[in-house]
Design a protein around this nucleic acid. Sequence first.
DNA 1: TGACAAACGGAAACTATCTCCATATTCTGT
DNA 2: ACAGAATATGGAGATAGTTTCCGTTTGTCA
Lengths: 205, 205
Amino acid sequence: MTADKPLRADAQRNREALLAKAREIFDAGDFDLRFDEFARLAGVGVGTLYRHFPTREALAEAVYQGEIATLCGRARQLQATLPAEEALATFLRGMIGHMDAHQGLARTLATLMATRSEALAEGSQTLERTVTHLMAAAVRDGTVRGDVGAGAVMMALHGIGAARHRPDWRAEADGVITLMLDGLRRTSSGDHQGQRAQKNFGEEK
Amino acid sequence: MTADKPLRADAQRNREALLAKAREIFDAGDFDLRFDEFARLAGVGVGTLYRHFPTREALAEAVYQGEIATLCGRARQLQATLPAEEALATFLRGMIGHMDAHQGLARTLATLMATRSEALAEGSQTLERTVTHLMAAAVRDGTVRGDVGAGAVMMALHGIGAARHRPDWRAEADGVITLMLDGLRRTSSGDHQGQRAQKNFGEEK
DNA sequence: TGACAAACGGAAACTATCTCCATATTCTGT
DNA sequence: ACAGAATATGGAGATAGTTTCCGTTTGTCA
């Protein structure tokens, strides 16, 4: 459905500049910035902005999709370089770190896409597929139980995201992940290695 | 907190008309209706609308507070006419029914109040107090265990609200309530003391 | 390099928001 | 019951934000 269109070089460049600026601004929570002002900040004319993203929602959607793509890419990379179980753990912890580092972005996107939630649902599905892959690999390894689906993990992640307002959010979120990972681990013997290590994606500024 | 201001009769009337219309329109999901058009629909001038509710958010906030007040009133009424445990059960089931019947309203309010979430937090606190009362009465009756706070119930409700997109939402939500009520009911063997589980997730059957 | 299509920018047209005040309604004291 | 004070109203017009349109520029391909 994401039809590939040959995009002219300058168009591509502008598009990327707009997305980058949007990400930055959304992250700062200024989602109601004037549209023409936004174009100016991104260094393009309003016309260009409108050609690429006809509405505020379209812009949000594009940023969101980029976000999902980044996450999925990260997962693929982890899966290629780490043992399955570790890849899953690192990915989930990384998700929390990502949510933590980009609170404003998440809130802004959620607000802007509240109406057009089709794209949101689609992204969430994409993410679920990725988690499914990570888990399936770990199950194949025999390190993770096979009787719990990715849906459960998704619900937990969703719940974590929805509870952002809680004062001790980060710690609680990490707690949920720890519980889940422990619960998922196939326990042939009680080997509880220190799972506290905070493996972020190493992207945060 | 709710300072009583003597409001002139016509002002009161207009205010109520605006709120009623807002509730109706929000419920239908049209939260981006033009402001002047909205005034016309409610049968008042724009000036009047602006005097009562300076911003869209203020309007949403007022509707939200009304909603909370309705809910709390219902709880008080149940508490006065039913045995404590039954009052609690009826209230919780009623909440689900309410959420179900007014999906659009909930979504709209959530969207509009994403920024000004102070009122949201306050309303949620008010609701939590109400649930606390219901539970406390049931605990005094000896029908409900005393070692689990209202916070747990609130989290579950919150989780239910956040999962509205799930295809089988209503059934699953009812399931969660059933589980909770069963879990809350004091068993013949007595309370489970010193329980530590505060992270609940993946509550689906 | 020239020809053509694709993309650009930003002025201008358009649309929505909000303010202001002359007029209308309600309230209060006698 | 009524006059005067206080409060509220509506909507025209000012302000602010959005979107289109098109002459110009830039990139692509032969």
